[in-house]
Computed example of a mutant assay.
Amino acid sequence: MEIRELYAALVDLHGEPDGAPVEHGNGEGVRQLLTTILSQNVADTQTARATEALFEAYTDYAAIENADTDELAEVISVVGLKNQKAERIQRALTAVREETGGYSLGFLDGMDTDEAQTWLEDIKGVGPKTANVVLSFGFGKPSFAVDTHVERLSKRFGLVDETATNERVHRVMNRRVPDGIKYELHVLMINHGRGFCTARNPDCDNPVCTRYCSCEVCS
C-alpha cells in the first residue's frame, strides 16, 4: 500500500489535522513523559484524572521523584498498574535529573530522532509508544506513535502482519511513514479508529474502510 494514498483518503474523510503541538518549553517535555507513562493501557479519561491528581498532590518534579512510592501509587490509583507506573515515573525523573542536573528534556531537541528515542527507551518502563509520543507531541520530531487504535488499523489495513507485536508495529510504521506526515497520519488513524474502525462493531460504511480494511465486517 502507498502510505500517502491512505493519508489522502483519511484527509478526504476526516479533514486535515492541525500541526503537532510542541510543548517542550519550561519543562513540558517532562510533563509529557509522565503523562504518557500514566496513559499506558488506559483510557484518555483515566489518564486525565490521574494527571490532574498527580500535579495537585505534588508541587514540583523533585517532590514526585522523592515521594514515598506507595503514596505516589495511591495518588495515581485511577489508572491501572499503579505500582509499576509510580516506579516508572520516579525512574524517569531520576534519569532526567542525573542527565541534566534538573528536570528538563530540552537536551533531546539537539539529538536526532533515533538517538533521542534510544535515550528514552533506556529508561526501564519506557517503551516505543511512550518514547514516540514524547518525541512527536513534545518536540515535533518525525516519530510515529502507535496506540491501540493505530495498531489495530495498521493490521487491518495490511500495513503490518496481523501477528506483529506492538514494538514491531512501531519499528515498521516508523520506517514506512514519511517523516513529513508522521504526526498527521497518527492523528488521522486515531480519529478513524475511534469513529469508524472500532475494535468492536466497526462502522465500515465509509470509503477508507471499503478500500483498505480487511476486518471481518469489511471482508
Rank of each mutant, 00 (worst) to 15 (best):
L6E: 04
L6T: 10
L10F: 08
L13W: 12
G15I: 03
H24D: 07
G25C: 02
E28F: 03
Q32P: 05
Q32W: 06
L34R: 02
T35F: 14
N41R: 12
V42I: 14
V42F: 01
D44F: 02
T47W: 06
A62M: 09
A63S: 14
A67P: 02
V79D: 09
L81C: 07
K82Y: 00
K82I: 02
A86C: 07
E87A: 12
T94V: 13
A95M: 10
L105G: 04
F107M: 08
L108H: 12
L108K: 11
D112W: 11
D112G: 04
L120H: 09
K124L: 13
G127T: 02
P128V: 03
L135S: 04
L135C: 05
V146L: 07
T148L: 01
E151Y: 11
K155F: 01
F157D: 00
G158S: 12
T165Y: 02
N166P: 13
N166C: 06
E167C: 05
E167L: 02
V172C: 09
R176E: 14
V177T: 05
D179H: 09
D179S: 11
G180K: 14
E184D: 15
H186K: 07
V187Y: 10
L188F: 13
I190Y: 02
H192Y: 11
G195S: 15
G195P: 01
C215M: 07
C215N: 13
E216D: 15
